[in-house]
Protein backbone atom coordinates (compact mmCIF):
# COMPACT_ATOMS: atom_id res chain seq x y z
CA UNK A 1 0.00 0.00 0.00
CA UNK A 2 1.46 3.32 -1.05
CA UNK A 3 0.21 6.85 -0.46
CA UNK A 4 -1.29 7.19 -3.96
CA UNK A 5 -3.27 4.00 -3.59
CA UNK A 6 -4.60 5.10 -0.17
CA UNK A 7 -5.43 8.60 -1.44
CA UNK A 8 -7.18 7.01 -4.43
CA UNK A 9 -9.29 4.78 -2.21
CA UNK A 10 -10.22 7.70 0.05
CA UNK A 11 -11.09 9.85 -2.95
CA UNK A 12 -13.32 7.04 -4.21
CA UNK A 13 -14.96 6.79 -0.80
CA UNK A 14 -15.44 10.56 -0.67
CA UNK A 15 -17.12 10.50 -4.10
CA UNK A 16 -19.55 7.78 -3.07
CA UNK A 17 -20.43 9.50 0.21
CA UNK A 18 -20.80 12.95 -1.37
CA UNK A 19 -23.33 11.49 -3.81
CA UNK A 20 -25.26 9.67 -1.07
CA UNK A 21 -25.35 12.78 1.13
CA UNK A 22 -26.39 15.01 -1.76
CA UNK A 23 -29.37 12.78 -2.52
CA UNK A 24 -30.25 12.35 1.15
CA UNK A 25 -29.98 16.01 2.17
CA UNK A 26 -31.80 17.43 -0.87
CA UNK A 27 -34.30 14.54 -0.89
CA UNK A 28 -33.74 14.47 -4.64
CA UNK A 29 -31.69 12.64 -7.21
CA UNK A 30 -32.28 15.14 -10.00
CA UNK A 31 -29.35 15.27 -12.40
CA UNK A 32 -27.99 11.89 -11.30
CA UNK A 33 -27.87 9.02 -13.77
CA UNK A 34 -29.51 5.98 -12.17
CA UNK A 35 -28.03 3.87 -14.95
CA UNK A 36 -24.47 4.80 -14.00
CA UNK A 37 -25.24 3.95 -10.39
CA UNK A 38 -26.67 0.55 -11.34
CA UNK A 39 -23.56 -0.13 -13.41
CA UNK A 40 -21.33 0.78 -10.44
CA UNK A 41 -23.35 -1.55 -8.18
CA UNK A 42 -22.82 -4.28 -10.79
CA UNK A 43 -19.10 -3.45 -10.93
CA UNK A 44 -18.66 -3.84 -7.17
CA UNK A 45 -20.81 -6.97 -7.03
CA UNK A 46 -18.87 -8.81 -9.71
CA UNK A 47 -15.46 -7.64 -8.47
CA UNK A 48 -15.89 -8.30 -4.76
CA UNK A 49 -17.13 -11.89 -5.01
CA UNK A 50 -13.68 -12.73 -3.66
CA UNK A 51 -14.93 -11.50 -0.28
CA UNK A 52 -16.22 -15.07 0.05
CA UNK A 53 -13.13 -16.87 -1.22
CA UNK A 54 -10.06 -14.83 -0.37
CA UNK A 55 -9.14 -12.81 2.72
CA UNK A 56 -6.60 -10.05 2.06
CA UNK A 57 -6.71 -7.64 5.01
CA UNK A 58 -9.23 -6.07 7.39
CA UNK A 59 -8.83 -2.79 5.44
CA UNK A 60 -9.60 -4.55 2.17
CA UNK A 61 -12.66 -6.36 3.52
CA UNK A 62 -14.12 -3.31 5.29
CA UNK A 63 -13.67 -1.00 2.29
CA UNK A 64 -15.23 -3.53 -0.07
CA UNK A 65 -18.24 -3.85 2.19
CA UNK A 66 -18.62 -0.06 2.49
CA UNK A 67 -18.38 0.40 -1.30
CA UNK A 68 -20.93 -2.35 -1.88
CA UNK A 69 -23.33 -1.07 0.78
CA UNK A 70 -23.13 2.53 -0.46
CA UNK A 71 -23.60 1.48 -4.10
CA UNK A 72 -26.79 -0.40 -3.27
CA UNK A 73 -28.02 2.35 -0.96
CA UNK A 74 -27.58 4.88 -3.79
CA UNK A 75 -29.51 2.70 -6.24
CA UNK A 76 -32.24 2.25 -3.63
CA UNK A 77 -32.54 6.00 -3.07
CA UNK A 78 -32.74 6.73 -6.80
CA UNK A 79 -35.15 3.99 -7.86
CA UNK A 80 -37.25 3.55 -4.71
CA UNK A 81 -37.21 6.24 -2.05
CA UNK A 82 -36.79 9.33 -4.23
CA UNK A 83 -38.05 7.79 -7.46
CA UNK A 84 -40.34 10.79 -8.07
CA UNK A 85 -37.31 13.07 -8.44
CA UNK A 86 -35.43 10.74 -10.77
CA UNK A 87 -34.84 12.40 -14.13
CA UNK A 88 -35.46 9.31 -16.28
CA UNK A 89 -36.29 11.31 -19.41
CA UNK A 90 -32.73 12.57 -19.57
CA UNK A 91 -31.11 9.30 -18.50
CA UNK A 92 -31.39 7.73 -21.93
CA UNK A 93 -27.97 6.19 -22.48
CA UNK A 94 -28.43 2.58 -23.58
CA UNK A 95 -26.59 0.69 -20.83
CA UNK A 96 -26.80 -2.60 -22.75
CA UNK A 97 -24.47 -1.07 -25.35
CA UNK A 98 -21.86 -1.04 -22.59
CA UNK A 99 -22.64 -4.25 -20.70
CA UNK A 100 -22.83 -6.59 -23.70
CA UNK A 101 -19.55 -5.64 -25.45
CA UNK A 102 -17.75 -5.43 -22.10
CA UNK A 103 -19.05 -8.90 -21.21
CA UNK A 104 -17.82 -10.25 -24.54
CA UNK A 105 -14.41 -8.64 -24.08
CA UNK A 106 -14.10 -10.09 -20.56
CA UNK A 107 -14.60 -13.56 -22.05
CA UNK A 108 -11.98 -12.99 -24.73
CA UNK A 109 -9.27 -11.05 -22.87
CA UNK A 110 -8.64 -12.22 -19.30
CA UNK A 111 -5.86 -13.58 -17.12
CA UNK A 112 -7.49 -16.96 -16.63
CA UNK A 113 -10.60 -18.56 -18.06
CA UNK A 114 -12.43 -19.19 -14.79
CA UNK A 115 -15.79 -17.79 -13.60
CA UNK A 116 -14.39 -15.57 -10.82
CA UNK A 117 -11.57 -14.28 -12.99
CA UNK A 118 -13.93 -13.49 -15.90
CA UNK A 119 -16.30 -11.66 -13.55
CA UNK A 120 -13.36 -9.71 -12.08
CA UNK A 121 -12.23 -8.77 -15.59
CA UNK A 122 -15.79 -7.82 -16.52
CA UNK A 123 -15.94 -5.49 -13.52
CA UNK A 124 -12.65 -3.82 -14.47
CA UNK A 125 -13.80 -3.20 -18.04
CA UNK A 126 -17.27 -2.12 -16.98
CA UNK A 127 -15.96 0.33 -14.38
CA UNK A 128 -13.93 2.10 -17.04
CA UNK A 129 -17.10 3.04 -18.95
CA UNK A 130 -19.77 3.02 -16.22
CA UNK A 131 -19.70 6.81 -15.88
CA UNK A 132 -20.72 7.33 -19.52
CA UNK A 133 -24.51 7.47 -18.83
CA UNK A 134 -23.82 10.21 -16.27
CA UNK A 135 -21.60 12.22 -18.62
CA UNK A 136 -24.13 11.69 -21.41
CA UNK A 137 -26.89 13.00 -19.17
CA UNK A 138 -24.89 16.15 -18.39
CA UNK A 139 -24.14 16.73 -22.06
CA UNK A 140 -27.84 16.30 -22.80
CA UNK A 141 -29.16 18.70 -20.18
CA UNK A 142 -26.15 21.00 -20.69
CA UNK A 143 -25.58 21.54 -16.98
CA UNK A 144 -24.80 19.92 -13.66
CA UNK A 145 -25.30 20.96 -10.07
CA UNK A 146 -22.04 21.96 -8.42
CA UNK A 147 -22.25 19.15 -5.87
CA UNK A 148 -22.61 16.64 -8.73
CA UNK A 149 -19.43 18.01 -10.28
CA UNK A 150 -17.60 17.56 -6.94
CA UNK A 151 -18.75 13.94 -7.01
CA UNK A 152 -17.43 13.46 -10.54
CA UNK A 153 -14.17 15.21 -9.71
CA UNK A 154 -13.53 12.94 -6.70
CA UNK A 155 -14.35 9.90 -8.84
CA UNK A 156 -11.96 11.04 -11.57
CA UNK A 157 -9.22 11.78 -9.01
CA UNK A 158 -9.55 8.26 -7.67
CA UNK A 159 -8.74 6.91 -11.12
CA UNK A 160 -5.89 9.33 -11.74
CA UNK A 161 -4.36 8.45 -8.35
CA UNK A 162 -4.63 4.75 -9.17
CA UNK A 163 -2.63 5.36 -12.34
CA UNK A 164 0.16 6.92 -10.28
CA UNK A 165 -0.14 3.98 -7.87
CA UNK A 166 0.45 1.56 -10.77
CA UNK A 167 3.50 3.49 -11.96
CA UNK A 168 4.80 3.35 -8.37
CA UNK A 169 4.15 -0.38 -8.10
CA UNK A 170 5.82 -1.02 -11.43
CA UNK A 171 9.01 0.75 -10.34
CA UNK A 172 9.20 -0.32 -6.72
CA UNK A 173 7.47 -3.70 -6.68
CA UNK A 174 8.04 -4.72 -10.28
CA UNK A 175 4.35 -5.43 -10.39
CA UNK A 176 1.78 -4.61 -13.00
CA UNK A 177 -1.54 -5.82 -14.37
CA UNK A 178 -2.07 -4.89 -17.98
CA UNK A 179 -5.86 -5.37 -17.89
CA UNK A 180 -6.28 -3.02 -14.93
CA UNK A 181 -3.84 -0.48 -16.36
CA UNK A 182 -5.35 -0.27 -19.85
CA UNK A 183 -8.90 -0.04 -18.44
CA UNK A 184 -7.72 2.52 -15.88
CA UNK A 185 -6.19 4.67 -18.63
CA UNK A 186 -9.39 4.54 -20.66
CA UNK A 187 -11.41 5.49 -17.59
CA UNK A 188 -9.14 8.41 -16.72
CA UNK A 189 -9.19 9.71 -20.31
CA UNK A 190 -13.00 9.81 -20.21
CA UNK A 191 -12.74 12.31 -17.35
CA UNK A 192 -10.27 14.67 -19.03
CA UNK A 193 -12.89 16.83 -20.72
CA UNK A 194 -14.79 17.04 -17.45
CA UNK A 195 -11.61 17.91 -15.50
CA UNK A 196 -11.05 20.80 -17.88
CA UNK A 197 -14.56 22.15 -17.31
CA UNK A 198 -14.28 21.61 -13.56
CA UNK A 199 -11.06 23.59 -13.29
CA UNK A 200 -12.05 26.40 -15.67
CA UNK A 201 -15.62 26.80 -14.40
CA UNK A 202 -16.53 25.19 -11.08
CA UNK A 203 -13.33 26.16 -9.27
CA UNK A 204 -13.88 29.77 -10.46
CA UNK A 205 -17.19 29.70 -8.64
CA UNK A 206 -19.34 29.24 -11.74
CA UNK A 207 -21.96 26.62 -12.36
CA UNK A 208 -21.06 23.94 -14.83
CA UNK A 209 -23.06 24.59 -17.97
CA UNK A 210 -22.23 23.65 -21.50
CA UNK A 211 -22.69 25.88 -24.52
CA UNK A 212 -25.96 25.08 -26.27
Amino acid sequence: MNIFRLAGDLSHLAAIIVLLLKIWKTRSCAGISGKSQILFALVFTTRYLDLFTNFISPYNTVMKMIYLGCAYATVYLIYMKFKATYDGNHDTFRAEFLVVPVGGLAFLVNHEFSPLEILWTFSIYLESVAILPQLFMISKTGEAETITTHYLFALGMYRALYLINWIWRYYFENFFDLIAIVAGCVQTILYCDFFYLYITKVLQGKKLSLPA
Binding site: H12, E117, D177
Partner: peptide, 10 residues
Amino acid sequence: EQESAGKDEL
Protein backbone atom coordinates in the same frame (compact mmCIF):
# COMPACT_ATOMS: atom_id res chain seq x y z
CA GLU B 1 1.76 -17.64 -11.19
CA GLN B 2 0.86 -14.03 -12.00
CA GLU B 3 -1.77 -12.74 -9.60
CA SER B 4 -3.96 -9.92 -10.83
CA ALA B 5 -3.15 -6.56 -9.30
CA GLY B 6 -6.82 -5.99 -8.66
CA LYS B 7 -6.92 -8.77 -6.09
CA ASP B 8 -5.43 -6.60 -3.37
CA GLU B 9 -6.65 -3.35 -4.87
CA LEU B 10 -10.18 -2.01 -4.70
